[in-house]
Design a protein around this nucleic acid. Sequence first.
DNA 1: TACATCATTGCAACTTTGTTGCAAAATATT
DNA 2: AATATTTTGCAACAAAGTTGCAATGATGTA
Lengths: 141, 141
Amino acid sequence: MHTKLSIVDTLKKHQLSVTDARKNILSLFSESGNALAHADIEQQSSAEFDRVTIYRTLQTFVEKGIVHTIPTSDNSVRYALCKDECAAGHHHDDHIHFICDDCGITYCLDQITVPKIKLPNGFKASQTDLIVSGTCNKCEQ
Amino acid sequence: MHTKLSIVDTLKKHQLSVTDARKNILSLFSESGNALAHADIEQQSSAEFDRVTIYRTLQTFVEKGIVHTIPTSDNSVRYALCKDECAAGHHHDDHIHFICDDCGITYCLDQITVPKIKLPNGFKASQTDLIVSGTCNKCEQ
DNA sequence: TACATCATTGCAACTTTGTTGCAAAATATT
DNA sequence: AATATTTTGCAACAAAGTTGCAATGATGTA
C-alpha cells in the first residue's frame, strides 16, 4: 500500500528542486482536491508569486507528471494532481472529468474510467479525454 | 431524407440575416469538413474581415446551434458544424472528436457515439465531450 | 424600388493572457 | 561555506479577447 507523499517528497521524487513557489502551488492542489485553472492559482497566490512563475511551474508540473491538463471549451485549461503512477511524459489519467456549469468546479471522477473507443482504420489514440459538464452534487437541489 | 441546406438557407433557418462575413465563414466550415480554430479562420479570411467580426460570428453560430465547440488542452477551442438536428441553445453532438497531434486537424467522428456514462449520485450531465488525440490516418505511415 | 428600421461590421482603445531574455536570488552540490 | 546550477521576478513584448460607438449593410414594408 502507498503512503501519501508529502509535498516536498513529491517534488523530490520528480527530481525538482524544492522552492517556495512549487511547494505553495502544489499544496493549493492538494488542499483544493479539485482541478484548478491558471486563474484560480493566480488569485490565490498572486501577491506571492509572479504570473510568469505560475506559468512555468504549471508547465514543469505537467512535464514531470505531477499534474495533468483537462481540456475545456472556454479556453481555460484546468490542471489536476495526477495519481502516483503518473511518470514524466506519460500520463495515466484515464478517468473522467466533470465540470459544473453552476459553480465551475472541476472534479476528477477517479472511480469512473474512460471506456475503450474503437477508432476508424488508421487512427491511433495516444490520449483520451472524457469531459462531462452539467450540475454537480453540491449545486443540485 | 434530408436535402443538404445551402449556406444561405442554413443562415435563414436560424433566423440570421445573410451577410458576407457569415456566408464566408460558414462556407469555410463546409469546405474544410473538419473543425476550425479561431486562428484558422482568421488566417483564411483576415484580409476580408475584422478579427472582432470573426469572434462575434463564431459566438452567434454557437448560440444558434450552427456550430459546436470542441474542448482542447491547448487553449484553442475548435468549432465544427453541427448536424441539422442541433437547435439554438441545445446541441446534440454526442460524437467523438479526434485531434491529430501531428497535423493538428480536428475530426468529427460522427459514426462513433459517446457511450453513456453513469455518474455518481447528485451529478447531472448536460453535455459529454470525448476527445481522442493521437495520429490520424493521413499522418500514419 | 425607395424608405425606414434594425442588425451587423469595422475601428479604436483597451484588458487579459501568454511568452522571452536576462540579471538577481534561491537551491543544490561539493 | 563556496561554487555551480536552477529558479524567480522584472521588463518588455506578442497574442488573444472584449467593449462602445459610428458607419455600413440587410430586411421588411409601402
